[in-house]
Design a protein around this nucleic acid. Sequence first.
DNA 1: TAAGATTGAGCCCTCAATCTTT
DNA 2: AAAGATTGAGGGCTCAATCTTA
Lengths: 144, 144
Amino acid sequence: VDTKWLTDDELRAWMRLVAVVELLPGALDAQLRRDAELSHYEYYVLAILSEAPHRTLRMTAIASRTNATLPRLSHVARRLEDWTLCQPAAPGHVANVREHVIDALTPEQVEQLSAIAATLLRRLDPEGTFALHAATAGQEPTGS
Amino acid sequence: VDTKWLTDDELRAWMRLVAVVELLPGALDAQLRRDAELSHYEYYVLAILSEAPHRTLRMTAIASRTNATLPRLSHVARRLEDWTLCQPAAPGHVANVREHVIDALTPEQVEQLSAIAATLLRRLDPEGTFALHAATAGQEPTGS
DNA sequence: TAAGATTGAGCCCTCAATCTTT
DNA sequence: AAAGATTGAGGGCTCAATCTTA
């Protein structure tokens, strides 16, 4: 219906991206839910926490780094109660990431994907609040 | 926490992809919600319907093409009640897609993205139920 | 009776209002 | 009082059970 304004190639690329964006979260959630009773978001929160200086971070900081609202994070915190976990879930999660993404692509494609995603992030998240902490779009050697 | 099993380059690519997957749906929803009071999923359903022979499709067919469960689609259908719409929302939506994705990339990157996404979809959706209808991952000239 | 479709309970997220702390 | 954080109502999605139709 809206195909008139994109070329065939552009439309195909777009629809495939939409499909990936729809399906990937489910694939991540399914594995973690099955093996660790964690949603991908919960896992991500724990992973970020585990990298923090004293396993401690302001709710505000976690929220922005994970692109979540404060209430969402607060609810998640209440449900999890005891944080800990996460570490044992890592190997399975990484294997899943390998299987669905990294190992499916050639090394060149991984680099291409990295560059493409970095470009998109500059528009989706100009402030860089979400992604910048984990993977800077530029190349400065952050001191932390 | 799980960085030991991915190279730095792979990890960076992965984290950027995760960020895109987290942020893109919100960007699509925000524009459509604002300009057409439609979620991206609802828009997508209407777009698929509008391309169908007689504006008609089995719920089962729509559900699989949109990667939704039948109950989800059923609930959406109840809320929308009168289908129609969608056509007027298309230009704004396409402009948004251009701004956030297509125009941000070089033509080469659009092709790379297309190939990468096609590869990922073979693992995320082996049956091709979701994406195959809209954009075949391979290159066979499907008869339909 | 098997495929197609809807319903309702439960869970999670969003938004606005409300504490709480510095 | 302003920043940090929690709470509760409302709405969408999932899952299982149910209804409907060929």
